[in-house]
Design a binder for these strands. Structure first.
Lengths: 369, 369
DNA sequence: GCAATTTGAAAAAACGTTTTTGTGTGACGG
DNA sequence: CCGTCACACAAAAACGTTTTTTCAAATTGC
């Protein structure tokens, strides 16, 4: 049953147990207590002993048992991260690029601070983490009717969200979130479209089940009012992908009063919009200018390269973890809200020459490293 | 310090402790042992008692402490997942879509089986998981010179890789992996290009630091030999993205003897190839046909939609977790290798009309749900 | 009707740490 | 020379489970 190979990695029933704190103590000729103190730097020990024990521990390859440590600490050292889902939009995660960037930054930040990130399964019920406990939870883009946030708070698990919980009824200062300044971002990209000659600016977006969609719509309507423009709003239902963007854009472009500029609140919708324009022989940016929210490689390399409102997911991931760790560790006071700035990345899809104005055309692929 | 709000989620110093097994025992009028047996179904108990205790536990909202449970079990219930990196190609992860699909499937499978997945940080050193221990490790696309696999095996942590470890010196039956059948896949897509009229088929790929790249190159060379074609191979160095694909394709297309078909071993390279063709006025699929490895939404919605060799990352994620869990639990025997089939998704980028042959043109967006 | 067996449940040990409390030794001051 | 104190370390308790052992009561067999 058990092969003799050096590296066979099956669990060996009778292998010698891992080296524990007792083994280190025995080897160093001290008590387990002393080893613990020595390694944690807590007790009163002379440097000499501390060093000697550290050396012995190193030699033996001692690695403290996480479960035992967590048991006495009452923590697990784990943070959970979950993507919010709603019955109305299963597989709400429409933007892999965005989430991966956020996840990578979050993981790195967490590991730097000695914690690990576990990702939630898509299962229903309360067991999202396969029976392990998390010290805190990150919920990405909570949707209306999300159960995760409330359920975990009720159980005393600190929660920080990315984007705000829509329809939040709790006082503002009881919620913890990191979010983009979507209002301002929407304004700025609409202004950008206007600068580039957009006079009938349409919005393609999704059902307002996340706070950012609601913000975008609100921002758009405010902006339209300020610019005396009739809102042209198309809301996508069902799965949010290029096909949905295509359909929404087709509806706008084939209508009686087609827009000359389109802002789509997700880059995949914007890519679908480009495809729709292409299929109708509408030139971008000559006849129509297009911009999308969320930057991505796909947008950067689309034809034409897509102007984007960058959301800086790395920064969001970093900050959300920092806030959650502060919360978990009981640091007080914790800054409850963080606004991460957005940035416009102007590319060819909005590089229309406006009379008496030179378009700032930059290298469309300026982010290559 | 402590606000009185209902949901304040800061850690309360003097909050009432979590309900433990003792609380349940007291409430049910039995001993902790009985509760444990009752809930795990291990001891000898009458149904009546079992039900009663289950009810009490439910009422009190009892959730067993994971650390304590893990401590006695000697496991953590955690599986790690890491993306391999090499000094030569930092941030080796070039395909977010692919990894996210794999990760999602892996997570769901793990959670279904009562385990959780923690993602490794990008840090150097041995602390990839912020001090927590994992019962097993998944390494995605190990690169040449990878330390992670060997280091963890040495520590007795079971490892399963996605793709094989390149330059593996251990006997084949000591390694555990899930992989696509890249040889066969490469053959089939090259055949596809040939069918569609490709007579000078070039390959754009990366340094052979992963097993799949090595397989692809080997498959390509074998295929060329069988088709009496001189290999036209361009190897991309540095970051693997659309820009690299653009540059590689440009080199081929601007050369003295440009190819009439290009296969790129990553869809981002293929998208760059499309951009290069576009920038040179080379029509796809009329003058050049292009296919990429790995399917993605970006490829599906590119102009023209990109023919892809689909790798089925969901299946890989599912199988890798199942294999690792079997390994961790000491199930014996464990099937050591799994080959996941690939599939060609023919789209417009290879839809060239070949004389005397009708191209099988399918709906380019056939995967919309 | 008494020993043997089965049943139901409790007591106790174990898991590997950290933290709290305890203790023997030498130095120092009075 | 004795008491006090700091020091260096050890012993013991605690964390919340699971697992093993023990034990009393109920049931069975003859």
């Amino acid at each position: 049953m058990s092969s003799g190979y050096l590296y066979d990695c099956r669990v060996e029933a009778k292998g010698k147990a891992r080296v524990g704190i007792r083994d280190v103590a025995r080897a160093a000729g001290v008590s387990p207590t002393t080893v613990s103190h020595s390694l944690s730097g807590k007790g009163r020990l002379p440097e000499s002993t501390r060093e000697r024990i550290a050396r012995v521990a190193e030699e033996l390859g001692y690695r403290p048992n996480a479960s035992a440590r967590n048991l006495v600490a009452g923590k697990t050292g784990l943070l959970g991260i979950a993507i919010s889902e709603s019955p109305e939009s299963p597989f709400g995660l429409s933007d892999f690029d965005y989430f991966m960037q956020l996840l990578t930054a979050a993981t790195t930040t967490a590991v730097e601070k000695g914690m690990a990130l576990v990702v939630a399964g898509m299962g229903q019920g309360e067991e999202f983490f396969g029976g392990v406990d998390v010290d805190g939870l990150i919920v990405v883009d909570p949707v209306v009717g999300d159960q995760l946030v409330a359920a975990n708070l009720r159980r005393g698990v600190p929660v920080v969200t990315t984007g705000r919980v829509p329809g939040e009824t709790r006082p503002d200062d009881e919620t913890y979130w990191v979010d983009n300044d979507h209002r301002r971002g929407t304004m700025s990209i609409l202004d950008h479209l206007h600068e580039r000659g957009g006079r009938k600016v349409a919005l393609i977006t999704t059902l307002p089940i996340t706070s950012y969609t609601a913000d975008d719509i609100e921002g758009y309507e405010t902006w339209c009012e300020a610019h005396s423009q009739e809102p042209m709003l198309t809301v996508v239902e069902g799965p949010i992908d290029e096909g949905a963007g295509f359909a929404a854009a087709a509806e706008l472009l084939d209508g009686p009063d087609p827009p000359d500029a389109i802002y789509a609140t997700l880059d995949r919708l914007a890519l679908g919009t480009l495809a729709a324009a292409r299929s109708r022989g509408i030139g971008v940016p000559t006849d129509l200018i297009v911009a999308g929210c969320t930057d991505s490689k796909a947008g950067e390399w689309a034809d034409p390269p897509l102007t984007a409102l960058a959301l800086n997911p790395e920064e969001i991931g970093r900050q959300v973890v920092e806030m959650l760790i502060a919360l978990v560790q009981g640091d007080d006071p914790v800054e409850r809200h963080q606004l991460v700035p957005t940035a416009i990345l102007p590319r060819e899809s909005t590089a229309r020459v406006v009379s008496g104005q030179t378009p700032r055309m930059e290298d469309p692929h300026d982010e290559d490293s």
